[in-house]
Write a protein that binds this DNA or RNA. Structure first.
Length: 271
DNA sequence: TAACAGGAAGTAC
DNA sequence: GTACTTCCTGTT
C-alpha cells in the first residue's frame, strides 16, 4: 500500500472522460485500473490517494500512467479568462489528466469507438478482455484480466470477435492485429515517431481515419498537441468559437484543452 | 410494458 | 454522398 498526495486529479472525472475505458469505479471513492500486466486499486479523498500497490510499483508504473510529472494547474492557468466557455469547462473538469496508456490498447479501443457510444464501447472492451485477455491475480488475491495482445486477437479470428458487439469494426481490429504480428505495422517505430509521422502511419491502417489516429496519438503516444475532432468538438468549435478555435494560443497543450472542452460538452450539458 | 426511432469519440467506398 | 453493426436512450 502506498499513500500520496496528488493535485489536479479526480479519478471519477478521468474515468468518465472518454479517454480510457478500463478505469472502473468499484466503490464511492475507489477505482480499479489495469495497464499491461499491472493492476491496482486506488481510493481518493480530496487530494489524498491510497494505492493498493507497493511504493516501487507506484514509482515505476502509476506515476507515469497518471502523468504525475505534469503540472495541470499550470495548464489550466493558460486558459484565456475572456473565453468564458473554456473557463467553465476547465473548472468543470479540473481533475482531468491525459493518461499515458498502452499504445496497442489505445489503437484497438479507438477503432471500437468510431461511430459508437460510450456505454457500448465500454461493454465491447469488457468483453474483449474477459473473453480474450489473460486472467491474472493481484498480490492480495484480486483477479483481473489483461487487455488481449495482437496474437490473442489473431487466434480468436472473426468468429471469436463476433460475440463482442463490435459490429463492422471487427474486421478493422483483426486486420490491425495481423499487421502487428507480421511486422508490417511496427509499433516500436510508431512510438519513436514525431506526431505528424505517427499520425500518417496510423492513417495507413485499415479502419483508422483522422479522428481515431488523433486519439491514439494523444492517449497512446502522449502527443499532447493532438486535437481529435469528433462530433462534440465540431459542435463546440462551431457554436462557441464561430468555426475557428484559437489553436496557436494553446500550442503545447492542445490535447489537454480538447479534453476539458470534450468532457464539459459530454457531461455538463446533461445536468 | 414493449416496441420503435434516432443517435452514437467515423471510416471506407 | 451513402452504407455500415449494434446498442443505448428517450418517446409512444
Amino acid at each position: 500500500m502506498f499513500i500520496t498526495e496528488i493535485n489536479d486529479m479526480d479519478l471519477k472525472q478521468i474515468a468518465e472522460s472518454g479517454q480510457c475505458f478500463r478505469l472502473m469505479q468499484t466503490g464511492e471513492n475507489t477505482f480499479a485500473v489495469t495497464v499491461s500486466d499491472f493492476y491496482t486499486e486506488i481510493s481518493q479523498k480530496g487530494n489524498q490517494f491510497t494505492f493498493s500497490c507497493s511504493e516501487e510499483e507506484f514509482n515505476t508504473v502509476w506515476e507515469n500512467y497518471f502523468d504525475l510529472k505534469e503540472d495541470y494547474g499550470k495548464v489550466k492557468g493558460l486558459a484565456d479568462p475572456a473565453d468564458s466557455y473554456l473557463s467553465k469547462a476547465v473548472l468543470f473538469g479540473s481533475g482531468i489528466r491525459i493518461l499515458r496508456q498502452d499504445l496497442w490498447e489505445m489503437i484497438i479501443t479507438f477503432l471500437i469507438s468510431q461511430n459508437n457510444n460510450i456505454p457500448r464501447i465500454r461493454r465491447s472492451i469488457d468483453l474483449l478482455c474477459s473473453e480474450l485477455g489473460s486472467l491474472c491475480q493481484a498480490a492480495w488475491g484480486q483477479p483481473y484480466t489483461t487487455f488481449p495482445g495482437p496474437e490473442a486477437i489473431m487466434d480468436a479470428g472473426l468468429s471469436g470477435l463476433g460475440r463482442l458487439g463490435l459490429g463492422y469494426r471487427d474486421k478493422y481490429i483483426l486486420e490491425t492485429a495481423k499487421h502487428v504480428t507480421d511486422g508490417s505495422f511496427d509499433l516500436k517505430a510508431l512510438k519513436a515517431s514525431e506526431y505528424e509521422k505517427a499520425h500518417l502511419m496510423l492513417m495507413e491502417q485499415y479502419g483508422i481515419g483522422k479522428k481515431v489516429a488523433d486519439c491514439v496519438c494523444l492517449f497512446g503516444l502522449h502527443h499532447i498537441d493532438a486535437f481529435p475532432m469528433d462530433t462534440h468538438m465540431k459542435k463546440i468549435v462551431e457554436v462557441h468559437y464561430s468555426g475557428s478555435f484559437p489553436y496557436e494560443r494553446y500550442k503545447g497543450y492542445l490535447g489537454v484543452i480538447q479534453q476539458y472542452l470534450f468532457f464539459y460538452d459530454l457531461k455538463a450539458q446533461k445536468l
